[in-house]
């Protein structure tokens, strides 16, 4: 049986923890809102670039596509795994790493693989399993487009030089506050937007010509795809942390209630036994 002093200490300690988890919950909630706004803000560019690529592909014709869009046999696949730098985000990183390991292991039987990791958590989890060809742990959890350019340059250059023939990206999609779904998307060969137009639109003038504009546009498209995935990661990280910290705060509250009950009972029983002591002492004197 713990002494009242011990119980008081434990209550204080759990209460301190609860203050920290509650603060983290509030910070994560406000950052999540900002991250969601960033996801929204990136949407117009993504919509417009997809439409432009569609029209350019239509005008170029499938037989004259620039080299970056021409299909080739896949002998080596690169995997880009997006994880967070910081923990206390519930099962988010574990889920991503598990999906990544499944994908990589399924592919590595047939072809050569290379693995590129974003985030310290992914680095820690994957470095023992695979040879990592690059690790990015300096990207902010509120990323701007410039933060991801070194990463996309590595991928685009590598694909153009033929170091790999396919790039798959694994990241958490922000579905809602409670759900972050691991997603696998192909960055290379570029998945072209489905053409919606039945026939070719009115003749478009291209400067300098459709193939060169398309060739210049594809890197932007890949950057945009990775950038949006990083924003999804950021929103997922904050929401997962918010939920985890809310659970931690609630657990701490329950724990404190239990401890307080035990402490009060103990105190009560001590008082009772002291009163009995005094009362029986007084009775003994009166009887004498």
């Amino acid at each position: 049986m713990a002494s009242p002093l011990e119980l008081r200490r434990r209550i204080r300690s759990v209460d301190n923890t609860r203050q920290i988890t509650r603060a983290m919950q509030l910070v994560a909630a406000s950052r999540m809102r900002r991250a969601q706004e960033a996801v929204q803000a990136a949407r117009p560019y993504a919509t417009h670039i997809a439409g432009m690529i569609e029209r350019l592909v239509l005008a170029t014709g499938n037989d004259r596509l620039p080299p970056i869009l021409q299909p080739r046999p896949i002998e080596r696949t690169a995997f880009l795994v997006l994880t967070t730098n910081r923990g206390l985000a519930g099962p988010l990183n574990t889920n991503i790493v598990r999906t990544a390991v499944n994908e990589i292991d399924a592919a590595s039987d047939a072809i050569e693989i290379s693995v590129v990791v974003v985030g310290k958590k992914g680095h820690l989890a994957l470095r023992g399993l695979y040879t990592l060809s690059a690790v990015f742990t300096e990207i902010s959890d509120q990323p701007g487009i410039n933060d991801i350019l070194p990463l996309t340059r590595l991928l685009i250059d590598g694909y153009e030089r033929g170091e790999f023939d396919e790039v798959r990206m694994i990241y958490p999609e922000f579905v809602n506050i409670l759900t972050q779904q691991p997603r696998v998307v192909r960055l290379f060969p570029v998945v072209l937007p489905e053409s919606q137009e039945e026939a070719r639109e009115a003749d478009i003038i291209f400067e300098p010509d459709p193939a060169s504009v398309l060739e210049a546009l594809i890197p932007r498209f890949v950057e945009m795809t990775v950038y949006r995935a990083m924003l999804e990661l950021a929103a997922s990280e904050q929401s997962a942390r918010m939920v985890a910290m809310r659970a931690a705060t609630e657990n701490a509250t329950e724990l404190i209630e239990g401890l307080r009950l035990a402490y009060n009972k103990l105190r009560q029983s001590r008082i009772t036994s002291e009163i009995i002591d005094i009362a029986s002492g007084a009775n003994a004197l009166a009887d004498a």
């Binding site: 432009m52 029209r55 350019l56 639109e201 009115a202 003749d203 478009i204 003038i205 291209f206 400067e207 300098p208 459709p210 060169s212 504009v213 210049a216």
Partner: peptide, 11 residues
């Protein structure tokens, strides 16, 4: 570019 410009895509 003035109004009623022909469709154009450029870098």
């Amino acid at each position: 570019i003035l109004p009623r410009h022909a469709p154009l895509i450029t870098q």
